[in-house]
Amino acid sequence: MATSTSVPAQAGTEAPVRTPGGRRWGRLVGRQPIGFLFAAPYVLFILAVFAYPLGFALWMSFHDFFFSAPGVAVERPFVGLDNYVTVLGDPDVQRSFRNIVVFLLINVPLTVALSLVLATALNGAIRFRTFFRISFYVPYVTASVAVVAVWLYLFNTRGLVNEVLGGFAPDPSWLVNSTLAMPVIAIYVTWKQLGFFILLYLAALQNVPKETYEAAAVDGATKVQTFWSVTVPSVRPATTLVVLLATITGANLFTEPYLLTGGGGPDGASASPVLVMYQRGIEQGNPDVAAAIGVVLVVGVLVISFVNRYLLERD
């Protein structure tokens, strides 16, 4: 979405300001070189907070890195793939990656389906539109820490959900059940993020030409038929983006297993890779191993994204 609006060719527009002999100079630095000065703080920020740490993470994952007092020179020998061997052989890490796959298999399809249906329903001139828009968006703007508390209470052993279910309540209850803990987290995150994806689809739906719908109506298509044969194919680029963003958000999962299931419980059944990264890196003081988990995670996300893109943009 962001890329589709990319830089319009501004080089072609002529600026009336001409400094004597400025042509060659202008070609070298541009017509308004002060622009670089304007962009400099941001560029420095990106280099310091994104580019350098990114390189540092990679470097760390190939070295024996440990916390030391600042300013003390310590040897950090190159260890090749040792950290990666540790990571890939660690059952906790393996389990967290399996968990996140379960998470994504539930979260991503649910997110796409629900946000597209609700965005379609919300699209057009309808009553209470602003109210609906706000209510869909409220969970997204609220801190996860705040709403997690309600979900904890709702899915408690003696919470409202089990109260309503009566005899059908699962035993052990949702968040302490090793099969159900991860699905509950996946549904929680779907619920929390849905408003953002609805907005994304709403923007895409505005760009679907009205004529397509009119043509479908002339042909006597039902609403459901129109949805499947007009809406769904028309917003396919947005779907690719939704899948990508939902995957990235899911891969970054930390707060929810940390709070909802008390640190990835029961017994690691809902631990996410970032949670294990935190435990290994900061709690247990192995930042090199943690960095390697991060690299493996990002590589995994990239692979999933490419596969998704291939599947979604085929034909």
Binding site: P53, F56, N252, A290, A291, L297, V298
Partner: peptide, 17 residues
Amino acid sequence: LVQVVPFQLLIIPLYVL
């Protein structure tokens, strides 16, 4: 590019720095 870099990957190096 920055918008697709998962912040969590940077958590450990940023913490160290």
